Amino acid sequence: MTSTQDQAAIFNGTAAFKDSRSVDGTDTRTMPAFVLGEELAELAEVDPRIVVLTADLGRSNRSTDFAARHPNRFVNVGIAEKNMITVAAGMAAGGLVPFAATFGSFAALLCAEQIRTDCAYPDLPVRVVGHHSGMSMGFYGTSHHSLEDLAMMRSIADLTVVAATDANHLRALLRLSLEHPHAMYLRLGRGRDPEVYAEVPELVVGKALTLREGTDLTVIATGSEVAPTMQAADDLAARGIEARVVDMWTISPLDRSAVLAAARETGAVLTVEEANVTGGLGSAVAECLLDAGIAPRFRRHGVPDEHVPVGPPAALYAHYRLDGVGIAAVARELLEGNRS
């Protein structure tokens, strides 16, 4: 029988694919999935409107850190995700600012109707937190992979869709969300995302952040793919290719000005997302370019329109070329006019 420790090692990846930042013992304060409860608990000290709900996943999203400090403002609805969203909507209608957290696959896919009808349609300030998005659930398979959430959520009117890049970026998103008047879907990664922002950044909804300037092409990434995109930019620079890197953390509304500037100033645009390429960030950027009548060299990079195999997350990222090496290779293909 395989021990619990062995199972954890398998889930985190074999030696061939393991990133040292994924080894047990990483400082949890640098992990987005683990600062959620802590940051909300701090904000709740001065904002009595904040309440937190979860669907029996308090340990996975660390909302237990909030519960320990504000037990009367924490609700575990049990394994009843749809009910959780509707309860959150009722709380918002009563003047509270609820944060309802569960796996991204459950939040966006299972609860799409409740998010649209109970939250976005009446324009209530519910914050739906979809954590462990993308392929980060690895061995749990298709039922737990959240690859369609960006496409589904950005198609809902009056719903703001944002993606956290790292721990400090998540802190900024949570602070920003308190005064945001509309419903919001916050997409979080696997909770082991490496640092991109050394400090908590200043954010404005609908405004992307340019992390690196470049003239040869622009790579527009979101969420968990921003860090490997920065690595890819270093790889490209070593080959004499200067890539602009844009963190498109706000998927809806999209920063159209950043997209059009990238197309006009660099002539080539690559989008990168840990999501199905159909309907997500890449589609949003493509629509923007088409509407403006601009046709740069362009490529969407993410998960192809297929169900992802079961496996360790790190191995899956390598398989789909969503690591630094893979993104750099795709960028070179775009510039060379090739497709693998």
Rank of each mutant, 00 (worst) to 15 (best):
Asn83Arg: 07
Asn83Ser: 15
Asn83Met: 09
Asn83Cys: 11
Asn83Pro: 12
Met84Phe: 11
Met84Gly: 08
Met84His: 14
Ile85Met: 14
Ile85Trp: 02
Thr86Pro: 07
Thr86Glu: 10
Val87Gln: 03
Val87Asn: 02
Val87Asp: 01
Ala88Phe: 05
Ala88Glu: 08
Ala88His: 07
Ala89Thr: 02
Gly90Leu: 01
Gly90Trp: 00
Gly90Ala: 09
Gly90Ile: 00
Met91Pro: 05
Met91Ala: 13
Ala92Pro: 08
Ala92Gly: 14
Ala92Asp: 08
Ala92His: 05
Ala93Arg: 13
Ala93Trp: 03
Gly94Gln: 10
Gly94Val: 06
Gly94Pro: 08
Gly95Ala: 12
Gly95Asp: 13
Gly95Thr: 13
Leu96Phe: 14
Leu96Gly: 11
Val97His: 11
Val97Pro: 03
Val97Glu: 10
Val97Ser: 10
Val97Ala: 09
Pro98His: 03
Pro98Ile: 01
Phe99Leu: 07
Ala100Arg: 04
Ala100Ser: 10
Ala101Trp: 01
Thr102Glu: 05
Thr102Asp: 07
Thr102Ile: 10
Phe103Ser: 04
Gly104Asp: 06
Gly104His: 03
Gly104Glu: 04
Gly104Leu: 01
Gly104Ser: 15
Ser105Asn: 12
Ser105Gln: 06
Phe106Leu: 12
Phe106Tyr: 14
Phe106Gly: 10
Ala107Val: 15
Ala108Asp: 10
Ala108Gly: 13
Ala108Pro: 11
Leu109Ser: 13
Leu109Lys: 10
Leu110Thr: 15
Leu110Arg: 15
Leu110Ser: 12
Leu110Pro: 00
Leu110Glu: 12
Leu110Gly: 01
Cys111Arg: 02
Cys111Gly: 09
Ala112Asn: 08
Ala112Ser: 12
Ala112Lys: 03
Ala112Ile: 10
Glu113Ile: 05
Glu113Pro: 02
Glu113Leu: 07
Gln114His: 09
Gln114Met: 09
Gln114Glu: 15
Ile115Val: 15
Ile115Phe: 03
Ile115His: 06
Ile115Tyr: 02
Thr117Tyr: 08
Thr117Asp: 14
Thr117Ala: 15
Thr117Gln: 13
Asp118Thr: 04
Asp118Gly: 01
Cys119Phe: 00
Cys119Gly: 03
Cys119Asp: 01
Ala120Cys: 13
Tyr121Gln: 12
Tyr121Trp: 14
Pro122Asp: 09
Pro122Val: 05
Pro122Thr: 06
Pro122Met: 09
Pro122Phe: 02
Pro122Tyr: 04
Pro122Ile: 05
Asp123Arg: 12
Asp123Glu: 15
Asp123Ser: 14
Asp123His: 10
